[in-house]
Design a protein around this nucleic acid. Structure first.
Ligand code: SF4
Ligand code: SF4
Lengths: 145, 145
DNA sequence: CATATTTAAGAGTATTTAATCTTAATTAAG
DNA sequence: CTTAATTAAGATTAAATACTCTTAAATATG
């Protein structure tokens, strides 16, 4: 049960590095993140560009440029990141996708599947990047390769 | 959040058709199922071949041949079908896939993700194809295109 | 035995996702 | 003003997934 695509996993991981180990300078360069985590610089760049477009990151070009959170980590919820990386419809997906499906006659797995999605949605909505970053720091969780 | 691949969705759907509308004869032909559901005959055939290898279906070639459940529908649990179609490791997947992850220092989403997977695993283990088939029949859920 | 029907097996094609590469634009610093 | 550092943008390639096609094997029936 793959919950996230590679874009989602790498994006979240790179973002968590930024949050858990915030730089002294205003901006942290993508090169440092990708080197530190052992991820492809170009791939991370592409992912971060999306996050910048979506308003989760801000970026600055040129020497000593890089990326930074657009808002305080306390105000960015995990659900925002996942929706930005996987699509706004992330929690609207159906389990078996019957063509004639409707609320009138939902298939027998619908109720349960909705419960699962609601549980995840709730949890992700309540989890801030700040909290995740702090846990990563205090538990000394390794994000690198 | 895509929980099943196309193979998983189509396979489950085709299987549910067989269970919900069992044939008079011993075997139901794949052609009838694929026509009835509007799915590709070849694709369903390929999927069913896997389910036959995995011991969920039995097949019989030649005129009036087709496929049938290998066991009573009461004894086939949804989890068996999903594991057969998506892989035995379906519930072992990780949310963010940190390379150095271990039980010693789990990442901050691990506990929650384990809960979600356990909930699904439990539900799927308790749900038989017979139950799903009956609900589909009584609720008149449409499986076709 | 000949033929039609059906699944088995696997090759082949198309689409989507993942990852890489190239070039341009921006900016700091000498 | 020149150069180096950095992200932006998009083209290109690679790999995985989804689907299609062809041929073979099995079996019932006339
Ligand atoms: S009822 Fe729900 S789970 Fe079932 S096919 Fe429709 S949307 Fe999907
Ligand atoms: S701790 Fe769990 S969720 Fe986190 S990276 Fe490891 S396996 Fe994945």
């Amino acid at each position: 049960m793959k919950a996230l695509s590679q874009v989602g996993k790498y994006g979240l991981r790179a973002l968590l590095y930024l949050v858990a180990y915030p730089p002294k300078n205003q901006y942290l360069s993508i090169r440092e993140i990708s080197d530190e985590l052992g991820l492809s610089f170009h791939f991370v760049t592409k992912i971060f560009r999306e996050l910048t477009e979506k308003g989760i990151l801000i970026s600055y070009r040129g020497p000593s440029g890089g990326i930074a959170l657009a808002k305080p980590a306390e105000e960015i919820m995990l659900i925002d990141v996942i929706k930005a990386l996987e699509g706004e419809d992330y929690f609207d997906k159906c389990l078996i996708g019957l063509p004639h499906c409707g609320t009138a006659k939902p298939c027998p797995v619908h109720e349960f599947w909705k419960e699962v999605k609601t549980k995840m949605q709730k949890n992700f909505s309540e989890t801030s990047l700040a909290l995740l970053g702090e846990k990563i720091r205090t538990m000394e969780v390794r994000l690198d390769d």
